[in-house]
């Protein structure tokens, strides 16, 4: 007992020393550690990879096929954010239901909105206005400041890539020049493909109806006219009269295709397509692939799929 009592202070000192050592080891950050960029959606991760390549570590919160509007983060996502140097988000309210609480849970105050460690699409671009071809009734339901799907416009992707390059240059001055060069290379690669995509779309696509407003940026970029949305207000079932009006519009404007997002209910779109005798197709909003190749691959797949379904 006496021995135990005597050794108690020694044990406490040893325990404290061990804890201190562990804390020091866990917070140790080598001078040459790469910045960690956490993107909220896969396409943004590809833009970050294109700009940062080997000089950064890129992680993604949502996976391909997940609806970023209603994503349910897990504890692992908070841990991912806790080590982030830069949080790269879409913005325009897309992640509003889950990202603020996830940032808070991560305890990483370097990545809160407004800080150097946070970059969103809203910091680099403006949401597009009312798309071409919309009726006055549709315009009244349109919220131009609420469409967040900018990464589906290649030119918007280029603008944001440059903004990301500048931000990374500020955070990691040693590799600043490389980030800016890669952003320029990304722009060049995307712009080389853009005329090809537009030509394909001009040949294969007329007026199109979509389920939600997800593809409006893509349509603007490819000069595709939007006929209308099946569900103008997300989550609110359209009326039968609205559906019958869409049927009339399909006949009047000779619409041949309905585009649906991978994560939306297809039954209503299928019903409309069946009633009108046209086709309904699911269009991706992200594909597997690394960096510039992956980002360009997404447009290649979209264009190829639209061309195939239009025949």
């Amino acid at each position: 007992m006496a021995l135990l009592k005597k050794s108690a202070p020694l044990q406490s000192i040893c325990t404290a020393a061990a804890i201190l050592l562990l804390l020091l080891l866990s917070s140790y950050s080598p001078a040459n550690a790469r910045p960690v960029v956490v993107a909220t959606v896969p396409a943004l991760a590809q833009i970050a990879q294109a700009v940062g390549d080997i000089d950064i570590d890129v992680k993604t919160l949502t996976s391909i096929g997940h609806d970023p509007n209603v994503f349910s983060p897990r504890p692992g996502h908070a841990r991912t954010l806790s080590n982030a140097t830069l949080l790269f988000s879409v913005g325009f309210g897309l992640e509003a239901s889950w990202l603020p609480s996830l940032i808070k849970r991560s305890g990483n105050f370097k990545i809160i909105p407004g800080s150097d460690g946070y970059l969103s699409g809203g910091d680099a671009i403006e949401a597009i206005g009312v798309p071409r071809g919309m009726s006055s009734q549709q315009i009244s339901q349109w919220s131009p400041d609420k469409n967040p799907y900018w990464w589906l416009d290649p030119e918007m992707g280029i603008k944001v890539a440059h903004a990301l390059a500048i931000r990374l240059s500020e955070l990691d001055a040693v590799n600043a020049e490389r980030y800016l060069q890669r952003a320029t290379a990304f722009e060049k690669a995307v712009k080389e493909r853009l005329p090809v995509w537009r030509d394909y779309m001009n040949i294969h696509t007329g007026v199109v109806i979509t389920y939600h407003n997800t593809y409006v940026y893509f349509m603007e970029a490819m000069n595709i006219e939007l006929g209308g949305f099946i569900e103008p207000r997300s989550g609110i079932e359209p009326s039968t009269r609205y559906m019958d009006d869409l049927l009339t519009l399909i006949r009047e404007k000779n619409v041949k295709l309905i585009w649906v997002e991978p994560y939306n209910n297809r039954a209503i779109a299928q019903r409309l397509a069946g009633a009108a005798g046209i086709k309904m197709m699911v269009l991706p909003d992200a594909v597997e692939g690394y960096g510039t190749e992956g980002y360009i691959g997404m447009f290649d797949l979209m264009v190829e799929r639209v061309a195939r379904w239009s025949q």
Partner: peptide, 11 residues
């Protein structure tokens, strides 16, 4: 865990 599972399950 499933890519695109959400839309199908919601449907």
């Amino acid at each position: 865990l499933l890519p695109y599972g959400e839309g199908q399950l919601m449907g």
